[in-house]
Simulated scan of single mutants.
Amino acid sequence: MNPQRPVNSFRNLTQPPRPRPKAAHGASQRLQKTGRWQQARRFMRERPLLERVYWFCVKAFLWLFFGSIGYVVVLKYVPVWVTPLIVSRWIDTMGTDENSHVYKKWRSYDELSKEAALAVVASEDQAFPTHWGFDFDEIQDAIKENQYRKRPRGASTISQQVAKNVFLWNGRSYIRKGLEVYFTALIELIWGKKRILEVYLNVAETGPMTFGLEAASVRYYKHPASSLSRSEAARIAAVLPNPRLFSISNPSSYIQRRTRQISRQMRALGGQRYIRNL
């Protein structure tokens, strides 16, 4: 009969108990987030009115988000007949002696003078063929200049002006500026440069109740925009910063000087070759 082997009590007493492995840091964070999410859901369920408001806001946001993308896709192929700016100008004439007739006629990019397209790019946004909707160099220059200028200088690209005119309202606010950034990115991604310039040439305000190059050319030069000369196109581009103050038919000395400057810029850019590959 074999005697029972004695237990090594000394080894058991001296060896400390092995600690339990701690949960990983990422796992603990996930558990905390899950717990907070469950608390938030419980908080919402205990307040039915707040829960309905929450889901209404979520659904409204999704409808607006996907609806805006769908609207941008549609306007890639459909002429833009009406913009918030046109409606605003028309409302301003109601109850006044001003002419309330809207002069506007859509023309495709191929039907417009390329001198007019080049004049607008030379005047408003010379980096248009290469940027992605925002000219950050111009923005930085404008910020520096506006520190000592009485009237702030803008740095909006043609893409930003199209986003503002077609989709948004007039005014200055962080909400409108944020939406302008959003729609600028959308049209750059979905439309492309040629379509953006085509829309701009058709919706830009070119005179009192006058929108687009075709309407301006017929009203002030008595011929279609397809036959605009360089000097005529440059004069239209010269009044774009403030078409309600400056006149195409009766240009001031400032507009005449600016017209010559734009013509020189058009030659310096290399002529119509500059916008050939939009």
Results as ranks from 00 to 15, higher is better:
Pro3Lys: 13
Pro3Ile: 09
Pro6Ser: 04
Pro6Ala: 07
Ser9His: 15
Asn12Gln: 14
Leu13Gly: 09
Gln15Asp: 03
Gln15Pro: 00
Pro16Cys: 00
Lys22Ala: 12
Ala24Leu: 03
Ala24Ile: 00
His25Met: 06
His25Ile: 10
Gly26Phe: 01
Gly26Gln: 05
Ala27Leu: 14
Thr34Leu: 14
Gly35Asn: 07
Arg36Ile: 12
Trp37Cys: 01
Trp37Glu: 06
Gln38Leu: 15
Gln38Ile: 13
Gln38Arg: 13
Ala40Thr: 13
Arg42Trp: 13
Arg45Tyr: 08
Leu49Asp: 08
Leu50His: 13
Val53Gln: 12
Trp55Gln: 10
Phe56Lys: 08
Phe56Met: 11
Ala60Ile: 07
Ala60Gln: 11
Phe61Cys: 10
Trp63Cys: 10
Leu64Asn: 11
Leu64Cys: 08
Gly67Leu: 10
Leu75Gln: 15
Tyr77Glu: 02
Val80Ile: 13
Val80Met: 04
Val82Ile: 08
Leu85Phe: 14
Leu85Lys: 02
Val87Asp: 04
Arg89Asp: 15
Trp90Met: 01
Asp92Val: 00
Asp92Leu: 02
Asp92Gln: 14
Glu98Trp: 03
Trp106Tyr: 13
Glu111Ala: 13
Ala117Thr: 06
Ser123Lys: 05
Ala127Cys: 06
Thr130His: 05
His131Pro: 03
Trp132Val: 00
Phe136Cys: 01
Glu138Leu: 09
Asn146Pro: 00
Asn146Gly: 07
Pro152Val: 06
Ile158Trp: 03
Leu168Arg: 03
Asn170His: 08
Tyr174Trp: 15
Tyr174Pro: 02
Arg176Phe: 02
Phe183Leu: 12
Phe183Ile: 09
Lys194Asp: 12
Val199Asp: 04
Tyr200Gly: 04
Leu201Ser: 08
Thr206Asn: 02
Gly207Thr: 03
Gly207Tyr: 05
Pro208Met: 03
Met209Arg: 11
Thr210His: 11
Ser217Arg: 10
Tyr221Phe: 15
Arg230Val: 15
Arg235Gly: 01
Ile236Asn: 06
Pro243Lys: 12
Leu245Ile: 05
Ser249Asn: 13
Gln256His: 08
Gln256Ile: 03
Arg257Glu: 15
Gln261Ser: 07
Gln265Asn: 11
Leu269Arg: 09
Gly271Ser: 09
Ile275Asp: 06
Ile275His: 02
